[in-house]
């Protein structure tokens, strides 16, 4: 290969400052051998420096806590005395026999199953309805996204008022329909679905925005071609829009699975895990074990289980979406 180096003017050159072109292939072989690796090595190290800040932060804030958590889960840690004893997998064995922990896993899974499809379906429906360039569309997009910026304390406070027994909005509506009022937060069967409803209401804006962004990426010409091809509205949706959104559907599902596995604030503030542990999620279990019962090793073990479940969930989702792409022959 011939590499050309542009050098600034050298002493003795006819024009001071004029560029001189040297062709490496014209240099003696020994000179090439001595100069090339040196240049390569310098470039290699300078490149590594660009990623060093990120790597350091990544190690400090992610790798170290994960490894520490894993190590803690294998120990019996007494926070007050500072004693620590290695007990192997004993914490995990204890978790296996803990009914409350198993209930928390069940609740967390149920919550993810209730919310994630709702985020995908509702987010897409809202995006389709509000994908319009007029003032009404803009106003509605702002309103639907607006709730996402509220803090969990405000959201849960508002919804506790809505669900308030006999006086809340829900009770008033049911009274007006001639039905007996009910507070879902006090019902073992309805507490978790109620928290799921609140969560969907709260952060439906993000999936909606992701779908809107994806919808606006679809070229208008494709829809015009579909119109020329006699495709009706549903045919266009199923055959053109939905396949174009497949990657966004996978993205929204993965984001929501990760987020909803970490349910905590809403359950803590609305039901405190009750009634009868029916709405206690895994993160609340971890919190209570670690910061109320001060069983850090036990809490860390539960956190490892959550980590593993999330990993499995996301891997499963990615596998399904990748399999879908392979089956339809889509090139990446």
């Amino acid at each position: 290969m011939c590499i050309c180096l542009m050098k600034p003017g050298l002493p003795g050159m006819p024009h001071k400052g004029a560029a001189m072109t040297t062709t490496l292939s014209a240099l003696p072989a020994a000179a090439r051998a001595s100069s090339q690796p040196k240049v390569k090595g310098v470039q290699h190290w300078s490149n590594a420096l660009f990623v060093l800040p990120f790597v350091l932060v990544y190690i400090a804030l992610l790798v170290v806590p994960v490894v520490t958590g894993l190590w803690l889960s294998l120990n019996d840690v007494d926070v007050l005395s500072g004693d620590r004893a290695f007990i192997g997998l004993a914490n995990f064995a204890r978790l296996w026999h803990d009914d409350i922990f198993r209930g928390a896993i069940r609740n967390t899974f149920l919550f993810v199953l209730m919310t994630t499809p709702a985020f995908v379906a509702l987010g897409l429906a809202l995006a389709l309805a509000l994908n319009r360039q007029d003032r009404v569309g803009t106003a509605l997009r702002t309103i639907f996204f607006g709730s996402s910026v509220l803090s969990v304390t405000i959201v849960t406070l508002v919804w506790r008022l809505v669900f308030m027994t006999d006086k809340g909005l829900l009770a008033n509506v049911m009274h007006s329909l001639g039905l007996a009022s009910i507070n879902p937060l006090t019902s073992s069967a309805l507490a978790l679905p109620a928290i799921a409803l609140v969560t969907v209401w709260w952060i439906i804006g993000l999936p909606m925005m992701l779908f809107l962004a994806a919808l606006q990426q679809i070229p208008e010409e494709i829809y015009e071609a579909a119109a020329m091809d006699n495709a009706g509205r549903w045919r266009t949706f199923w055959s053109i829009t939905l396949p174009q959104l497949r990657k966004t559907v996978a993205l929204v599902a993965i984001i929501e699975v990760i987020l909803q596995f970490q349910l905590f604030g809403q359950a803590q503030l609305m039901t405190n895990g009750g009634p009868n542990n029916s709405s206690r999620p895994l993160v609340q279990f971890i919190y209570e074990a670690g910061f109320q019962q001060w069983a850090l090793g036990y809490s860390a073990a539960a956190a490892q289980v959550l980590f593993g479940l999330m990993l499995i969930g996301v891997a499963l989702q990615m596998w399904i979406s990748k399999r879908g792409q392979t089956q339809s022959g889509e090139s990446t």
């Binding site: 070229p219 010409e221 494709i222 015009e224 071609a225 579909a226 119109a227 020329m228 091809d229 006699n230 495709a231 055959s239 053109i240 396949p243 174009q244 497949r246 339809s328 022959g329 889509e330």
Partner: peptide, 28 residues
Amino acid sequence: PGERDLAMVFQHYALYPHMTVRENMAFG
């Protein structure tokens, strides 16, 4: 547009990216 017995070739092709050539041609 689909009822006018016309076919159109667009400037930017407007092919359906997720369909094969055969599916693109068969869709209409």
